[in-house]
Nucleic acid binder design. Sequence first.
DNA 1: CCCATTAATTACCGATCGGTATAGAATAGC
DNA 2: GCTATTCTATACCGATCGGTAATTAATGGG
Lengths: 196, 196
Amino acid sequence: MAKGRPREFDAEEALDKAMMVFWQQGFEGASLSDLTEAMGISRPSLYAAFGNKEELFRRALERYVETGPAAKYFAALAEPTARVVVERLLRDAAQSLTDPCHPAGCLSVQGALSCSEAAQSIKDELSALRCNGEAALTERFERAKAEGDLPASSNPAVLARYVAALLQGMAVQASGGATREQLLDVAEMALGSWPS
Amino acid sequence: MAKGRPREFDAEEALDKAMMVFWQQGFEGASLSDLTEAMGISRPSLYAAFGNKEELFRRALERYVETGPAAKYFAALAEPTARVVVERLLRDAAQSLTDPCHPAGCLSVQGALSCSEAAQSIKDELSALRCNGEAALTERFERAKAEGDLPASSNPAVLARYVAALLQGMAVQASGGATREQLLDVAEMALGSWPS
DNA sequence: CCCATTAATTACCGATCGGTATAGAATAGC
DNA sequence: GCTATTCTATACCGATCGGTAATTAATGGG
């Protein structure tokens, strides 16, 4: 098994580096030279290991969802009540969006919020990802409503869209340099008027 | 006065076309070819009239602020009470962000939320613009607080940041294809818990 | 009418874009 | 050791990027 020359770099490490570059510069703003330099590998190695720029982005995004900040998002849905779910979503977001260990903001928002026609499929994939996150939150709120955890009069889809919009707005603020404290203020403000 | 050959295009019309392209594709995603095609002028005409791509963007942004959606934002601050200001901000945003007459979303958000180092100054200018809008809202809330229009316990800066985040999040949602009704739901949800 | 001035057109510039052909280096199985 | 296989390194590809030089066309002032 495993014939041939072994690769001299760790694929997951390289992917993490690529993720950071896409995170900071967006899909189109990240050039192959930026990527190879950050990943510490040559251009042919990148193509051999990851296909092309678009597939590399998808792999990086996958990693962002599975092991990055997006993983905490889905983990928060497991909290026992809707109120605690939202508390964790907003507070974790304030924390993660300003974590100095990685670029400010959210890859799913700033990866390709606008782009040329050539990158349309990337933009669509990102908005589909955000939509999935919102849908998962809607389901969580539907469950909460069924459990009497949210008022019977509440509208889970609207609540989820509201929270999603707030999180995405916090991501824009973080991208613009907002501090963790400022984002926490926004989070607490929203929590102060949460219906439960 | 006015010597030389007269230009064959209307500069403001051309600027509006450029604004649309930047709005849809972002600063970096919009190529000179995209721009000249949409503006209906040749490349040297563009450079003679507007300097270069960066200055063209700044001119288009200026126009966006003065005569575009951003103008309505500042107009809303003139409403008599904080409550009505926020009502108009959120509802006008839901309307404008999904107006089929122009690209979905907000130029100040999707013009360059992330970019390469080469476009950093554009990104900075946009985040400064958003920051100005937020600061103007803070001042409006301070006035409202002084007028007893907002509770004495309220924090104008936090309220403004909360509203700004919500608006920016709505812009992200619109960019992803959210409908006007969906954004209005978010607006009404936020208004339902407004402190006054 | 002629000239100075400005705009439009064509054709082009070097640089960088994403992507690859080719050849050499390192492994496993035989 | 030899071969098949896989990775790495150099050097390169056509296309497109933002930006311009040079020429021609249209105006106003003298």
